[in-house]
Design a protein around this nucleic acid. Sequence first.
DNA 1: TACTTCCATACTAGTTTGGTAGGTTTCAAG
DNA 2: CTTGAAACCTACCAAACTAGTATGGAAGTA
Lengths: 162, 162
Amino acid sequence: MRISAKTDYALRALAQLAAHADRPVSSEELAQSQEIPHKFLEAIMAELRRTGLVVSQRGTGGGHRLSRPADRIVVADVIRALNGPLTVIRGECPQDVDYGPPSESLQVVWVSVRAALRSILESVTLADVVAGTLPEHIRELAASPDAWVTHWYANPMHTSGT
Amino acid sequence: MRISAKTDYALRALAQLAAHADRPVSSEELAQSQEIPHKFLEAIMAELRRTGLVVSQRGTGGGHRLSRPADRIVVADVIRALNGPLTVIRGECPQDVDYGPPSESLQVVWVSVRAALRSILESVTLADVVAGTLPEHIRELAASPDAWVTHWYANPMHTSGT
DNA sequence: TACTTCCATACTAGTTTGGTAGGTTTCAAG
DNA sequence: CTTGAAACCTACCAAACTAGTATGGAAGTA
């Protein structure tokens, strides 16, 4: 799972909006408080507006606000809005890939990967993020110290970033 | 999670090698049986050799074979060899990203995403794939009919591929 | 020597990523 | 009705990645 700067910025900006749901917040303010390049964030907010996650108001005192309550927007909504489906195999959805022998089982692996991602990303809302109250099964996944260390792997192309 | 053609081809080729562990299998044979462009697969096999997952033999009767038993190579090994770490946020590992308020909890989300991916991709071996005997917890994830359907989402940029 | 197979390098066309620059429209307050 | 704040739009950019293709060599077998 690769989270781009764009998606990361979007989530932080939306969390900020969730934390100030009482008023519109400008791109400029979002950019400064989250240390995001202003014009880049503007483009991201435009995309989020087009997909219907935020509504915007021009002019003095304007800005952006969430289009629905923060407890009804999940992390998966944001990722899908900017990157498309959570899980894609060679450009296709897991249930559409067609494997011959001896690799048929790979499809089941991809389907379960998607199910696992959904169980996390569709259960965390923006309200959860700002309140710091993540669902129990997610805190459990992150509870093991093992979850916080990088696993070693061999490719010299990538070892710089362990 | 985005699985590229390269990674998909690699997994299918390695499954084929696992299914014929008694002899070296040539790129040509792998390419034909799995319908993979021959020269592209050659480049992929070279990469897998450099990362130590396969060993190769030139000349007549040569080809590729797994560098260790198929039950000691997991899907995560292959993905890491070709794509680097399983989970990357803005180019960094989950435990290295630095969030300010009100987004601190996002880090826990990413850590649990990685833990969930590991629990799947580090438990499925090539031997499991060719035998069709996936670990119980994976078959459970894929057991629900829900896991086999695409969830609707709103971005018009991506709706063509539902 | 001939043939097979891996191996290395280079090339391409298209897309994605992470931005920057400049101008236009909309809105509110004075 | 002007001024300023903000969203909005189009275009551009360099670097990396994706999915290959092409050419030629080097090593191993018969």
